[in-house]
Write a protein that binds this DNA or RNA. Structure first.
Lengths: 325, 325
DNA sequence: GTGAAAGCGCTAACAT
DNA sequence: ATGTTAGCGCTTTCAC
C-alpha cells in the first residue's frame, strides 16, 4: 500500500507538501499540487486514517450504539442520525448492543479505542457506564433512555404520559379491565410506560406483566394474562416487537383485536395498518430523535463547554380500529 | 487521557513492560505485572486503538455495509455476522449504504481508511468498486448480490430458482394472469427474481413492473398493474418492504389477498402471519448468510491465499393462505 | 511557498 | 525478564 512518502518521492516534493496539497491546506504552488495529485492517482494512494487520526487526535466518525437492530424504532433513529451526520461530513457506524450489557460495554470500548468523535447511545441498563468516554473527552448523547449518573445531553420521549394517554383512550373506549405488557424492570422506557399505565388505571392493578422487549416473551405473557380467571379486555403493549407476540397469542385463542381485546401498541410499525383491524398505536418520533441527537452531538463536538440539555419529544396517539369494539 | 508512558512512569517500569503486561505477552514478572495493572487502573488508562492498530497494522473490527438498515432481511444478516464475529473476538460495525452508490463508496472508503480487518458487503449496484480494498489486502465477502469483476468470496441465494418456484406455485393454485413486482434494474437479486418469474410464466409477459425496493414505489406499481385492462390475478413481490405497499394498494381497491389477488412475497417478515390471510412467502436464510459470510471472512483474514468460493443457499417457499383462493 | 524534523501512542526487534 | 530504540503514516510547527 502506497504511503505519503511514496507519493512525495514520485512527485519530487516533501511529505509535508503532499499532505498540504491533499488536504487543500494553506498555499501550495498549483503546479506542485497538480504533480502531487497525479502521483497520488498513479500510485493508487489512499491516506491511512489511523495515522492521520493518531496525529490529529480526532476522527470524522460517530458511533451509534443501539439496543436492537431488528427493532424498527431504533433503525429509524439510525436513519435520523445518519442523515444529519452525513451533511456535516461525518460517517456513522452502528453497533448493536442487543440489550446486552456486555456487548454494550464492548462497543463503548471500541468507540473509545478507535477514538470516534462522539457517540449516540441508547443505554441498555442501569449500569451503563460512559465515564471512560467522558473522561477522555468523547461527547456522548443518550437517546430513548436517560443515562444515570453525571449529566450529558439526552433526547427522550415523554413516554409515561404517552402510556397514560393510551390507557385512558382504552378506558374511554369502554374497556374495563385494561392490562399492560411492558419491558424489563430497570429499562427506563419500560418502567415509565408501566407507570403511565398505572397513572391511568390505578396503582393497585396487578393486570400487567413484564418481559423482554421481544415477541416470544410477550406472547407467553399475554397468554398468561388471558388465562387469568378475570382476564383483561384490553392491552397496552410497550413496543411493536412485543405486539407481534401478543397478536399471535390472540390468534391462538381465537380472540379478535378490538372487539374481544382492545389493543394499543407503542411504535407505528410499517405493518400496523395492514392487519385487521388496523392497529391503534403510540407513534414515537424516532427519526427526529436521531436527528436531534446528532445535532446535539455535533454541537458538543464543536464546543465541549455547552451546558447539558435534555430534549423531550412528544409521542402521538394514532387511533385506528384495534382500540374500538 | 493517560498514555502508556504515564502508566510506565507510575509503575516505575518501561513502556515495553507495560505493553507486555497489558497484552499478556511473553513472560513478565508477576510482581511487576501487578504494579502495572494497578497503575493502569489508578490512571484510568485505556489503550489508544489507533496507535496500536497503526503499529500492528491490523484491527479487530469488521465492517458490514448493507443496503438498507430498515429491511429485516439485512438486519438478520447483521445478526448472523455479529454472532459469529463475536466469538472470535471481532467487533462489527454496521454501515448503511441505503442503496446509494455514493454512500456506499464513502463507507468503503471509511473501511479502507480505518483499516478494518475485513468487510462484508451487499453491493448496491453494478459499479460497486472494491478494488481499493483488495489492493490493500483487505478481504471482502459479498452477500446477497455478487460483486462483478475479480473474484472473491460470495454468499448468495438461488433466488432465480426461488422466484420460478414461487410463480409456479401460484400457477398451480389456479391463477392465470400472474404478475411480478421486482426491484431496480441492475440490482442482481431484482434481475434474478424477474428472470425466475419469466422462467415460469413465459418470456413474453409484460405483466411486471420494476421499482425501488421500497413500499411506496411498489404501491404505485401495483396500482398501475391493477389498472390494466386485463389486470393480474396474482403477484409475485420481490421483497417484504415492497409487499407492504402492495398490500396497501390492494386494500385501497378493496381487493383481498388470496381470493382476489394471489400474493407470494420474498422474505418471511415477522408480521407475515399476522395479516389476514397469512402471507405465503419465500423465506431466505438471512441469518445463515450472515454467519457463513463472517466465517469466510475470518478464514480469509487468517489465510489470504485461499481460493475464492461462492456459496449458494436455498430459499424455501412457505405456503400460507395468500396464495390460495 | 516549501522542507526538515518532531511526535501522536503504541509494539516489536534487539540488547542486556 | 526488562529496557532501549526504531518506526507504523501522517500532520504541523518552525525555519528558510
Amino acid at each position: 500500500m502506497a504511503t505519503i512518502s511514496d507519493v512525495a518521492a514520485r512527485a519530487g516534493v516533501s511529505t509535508a507538501t503532499v499532505s498540504r496539497a491533499l488536504n487543500g491546506k494553506s498555499t501550495v504552488d498549483p503546479e506542485l499540487a497538480a504533480r502531487v495529485l497525479l502521483a497520488a492517482e498513479e500510485l493508487g494512494y489512499h491516506p491511512n486514517g489511523l495515522a492521520r487520526n493518531l496525529r490529529r487526535q480526532e476522527t470524522a466518525v460517530l458511533a451509534l450504539i443501539i439496543s436492537d437492530v431488528e427493532n424498527p424504532f431504533f433503525t429509524a433513529i439510525a436513519r435520523g442520525v445518519e442523515d444529519l451526520a452525513q451533511v456535516s461530513g461525518y460517517s456513522v457506524v452502528l453497533c448493536n448492543s442487543d440489550e446486552n450489557e456486555d456487548k454494550e460495554r464492548r462497543y463503548i470500548d471500541v468507540a473509545l479505542q478507535e477514538r470516534v468523535a462522539g457517540v449516540v447511545l441508547s443505554p441498555t441498563g442501569r449500569s451503563t457506564n460512559v465515564e471512560h468516554l467522558r473522561r477522555q473527552g468523547t461527547p456522548v448523547v443518550a437517546v430513548d433512555r436517560p443515562l444515570n449518573g453525571p449529566d450529558g445531553d439526552q433526547v427522550l420521549v415523554d413516554t409515561r404520559r404517552a402510556a397514560r394517554d393510551a390507557a385512558r383512550h382504552l378506558a374511554d373506549g369502554g374497556y374495563r379491565r385494561i392490562g399492560c405488557l411492558s419491558g424489563p424492570a430497570g429499562v427506563r422506557t419500560a418502567d415509565d410506560r408501566l407507570d403511565g399505565f398505572r397513572d391511568a388505571v390505578g396503582e393497585d392493578t396487578t393486570l400487567f406483566r413484564r418481559t423482554e422487549y421481544r415477541a416470544e416473551g410477550a406472547r407467553l405473557a399475554a397468554l398468561d394474562l388471558l388465562d387469568l380467571p378475570e382476564p383483561p379486555d384490553a392491552l397496552l403493549v410497550a413496543n411493536s416487537t412485543m405486539t407481534i407476540g401478543v397478536l399471535q397469542a390472540l390468534t391462538g385463542r381465537h380472540l379478535r383485536p378490538g372487539r374481544d381485546v382492545g389493543i394499543v401498541s407503542f411504535d407505528d410499525a410499517p405493518w400496523a395498518t395492514l392487519i385487521d383491524p388496523p392497529l391503534t398505536v403510540v407513534a414515537q418520533p424516532a427519526y427526529d430523535i436521531g436527528r436531534v441527537a446528532a445535532q446535539l452531538l455535533l454541537a458538543r463536538i464543536a464546543d465541549g463547554t455547552r451546558a447539558p440539555t435534555t430534549t423531550t419529544l412528544e409521542a402521538r396517539l394514532i387511533e385506528r380500529q384495534s382500540s374500538r369494539r
